[in-house]
Design a binder for these strands. Structure first.
Length: 271
DNA sequence: CATCAACCCTGAGAGC
DNA sequence: TGCTCTCAGGGTTGAT
């Protein structure tokens, strides 16, 4: 499931020489109507034709393609992926949902097995991403502001970190990994986290995200981009296996309706 | 404000 | 072999 590092990896790919920057869109196909949030299919095809891709960006887990006049936003959700190809493809195209055709004969395919991913073509990207919380790797998020953010709510820390309006980009994997690194139990009320622990947590979040990006993300489920962060997991999907730090068996519980992995010894509950 | 269930989907894995 | 059943997972919506 693509989280910030996986989306960043795909953004890098789209900006690379094999990517899409500079290409002119000559046509589009929407193969699964529900993948397109706005506008209607007819308007989408009409409006996107003729626009050029000027740049590729990322905001939280959203991919942002800056076009001549508008912005194309893509959220990969659980199983979304993007392929750029010239000529015939040897790929399995069964789950292609939206295709952009380019004037040079190449194309970009948004492929999404589970159909949870979404695409928006909008004039103002803030109409879609405006409600997102700060970028965890951004300079505007400081230890002080993060600590203050935690102090203002008493929700459990794990679902809070996964709330994209609180902080943008963390999903199930990197949240579990960051909480382990910081030594914080996933059920800890946010406002019970002391200032020093808040600083540790922000550091841990940045560490796991940067390491994920450095390793081109994690390759699990349907999404494979050559990343190998999955081999670095300390707790995620290691239920019953010994904690690398203390040897205690990693536990799996449900928190906020999500499978959650943690070490009961290294991450004691303070409530 | 916080929590929780349901929903959207597919395919993997278990059970038979 | 092949059927049915359960489940995961991000984010939204609506109920408690």
């Amino acid at each position: 499931m693509p989280e910030l590092p996986e989306v960043e990896t795909i953004a890098k790919y789209l900006r690379s020489e094999h990517g899409v920057v500079g290409k002119a869109i000559s046509g589009a196909q929407v193969l699964w109507p529900r993948s397109l949030m706005v506008p209607s299919i007819n308007e989408f095809v009409d409006e996107i034709r003729g626009q050029k891709i000027n740049a590729v960006d990322r905001r939280g887990k959203f991919l942002k393609l800056n076009l001549s006049r508008q912005t194309l936003l893509i959220h990969l959700r659980m199983s979304g992926d993007i392929f750029v190809e010239s000529g015939k493809t040897t790929r399995e195209t069964k789950h292609d949902r939206v295709i952009l055709d380019f004037s040079d004969g190449s194309r970009m395919a948004f492929n999404d097995t589970r159909k949870f991913g979404r695409v928006w073509l909008v004039d103002d990207p803030l109409a879609v991403t405006g409600g997102l919380g700060p970028e965890p790797l951004g300079e505007f998020l400081t230890v002080d502001s993060f600590s203050a953010m935690l102090g203002s709510v008493k929700r459990q820390i794990k679902p809070l970190l996964m709330d994209q309006t609180f902080i943008a980009g963390l999903g199930n994997i990197y949240t579990d990994e960051a909480l382990f690194l910081a030594g914080i139990h996933p059920c800890t009320p946010a406002n019970r986290i002391e200032t020093q622990k808040a600083a540790d947590l922000l550091t841990a979040i940045r560490e796991v995200l940067q390491e994920g990006i450095r390793r081109n993300g994690a390759s699990i489920d349907w999404v494979y981009r050559g990343g190998d962060f999955q081999n670095q997991f300390q707790v995620y999907q290691r239920t019953g296996q010994p904690c690398y730090r203390c040897g205690t068996a990693v536990e799996r519980i449900t928190v906020g309706q999500r499978g959650t992995h943690f070490c009961p010894h290294c991450q004691p509950l303070i409530s």
